[in-house]
Design a protein around this nucleic acid. Structure first.
Lengths: 111, 111
DNA sequence: TCATTAGTGAAGTCTATACTTCAGTATAAG
DNA sequence: CTTATACTGAAGTATAGACTTCACTAATGA
């Protein structure tokens, strides 16, 4: 329980670090319109393909992105698994915080 | 619709930038146990109160944190509003991506 | 009143990392 | 076989921003 929580947090940390960069968010928005290759991505982003590759590595390492190479072209698409993890994390914590806020609210009523 | 979407994205961007820093995530985790003052936070974080104040400004600017000053003590607590915004964003996009993946899946079946 | 405590603001340092260039590999096309 | 295309890896640069110090204000306590 404690260990699985620690692993969970490490995973979420990596996801939030990845999403903390505006270029990687732009990549995600581009891919939400459908799969694209590395050079397809580099054009609208206005950065080199090398830079794109570096971002892809990060996005892939936390399951926000999937890719497979067919010939010499790497096709990239979004991986829902990372987003699911993040959604679970937010929902869990949000509900626990709301419970706490409710308790706080009832305490304040006695003020 | 288009404009409200644009504003929404700007808001989510600021939230993800804020959550992209590990110290700010530690602040959030500390506050999930209940309200704390600025110096209460600085101790376990191992940074100066000035640094904490700077983080608080960022967290507050995107509605992840609320605070009010009583006397000379600023009490900080989590603001669910930012988390709600983020949760909505993820859910919306995740479902649309899943629809897209479903379509892609049925296309691949004809392969 | 004087000292202490809690926090803020400005300005500078310093590090993490986003991005580049260059050199290289592997696939495809002519 | 030659050339072009798609990408990857290593290494260097440059900048954003996290953190500090110092100086300050305002509230609390002795």
């Amino acid at each position: 329980m404690a260990t699985s929580m620690a692993l969970r947090i490490g995973r979420v940390d990596r996801i939030l670090d990845a999403l903390g960069d505006s270029t990687r968010r732009r990549i995600i928005r581009l891919l939400s319109a459908g799969p694209m290759s590395v050079s397809d991505l580099s054009r609208p982003l206005g950065i080199t393909v090398t830079a794109v590759t570096q971002h892809l590595r990060i996005l892939q390492s936390c399951a926000l992105l999937k890719s497979h190479k067919k010939g010499r072209v790497r096709m990239c698409s979004l991986d829902t698994s990372g987003f699911e993890t993040l959604e679970h994390w937010i929902r869990e914590h949000r509900t626990s915080w709301e419970r706490r806020l409710d308790r706080l609210g009832s305490l304040l009523e006695e003020d």
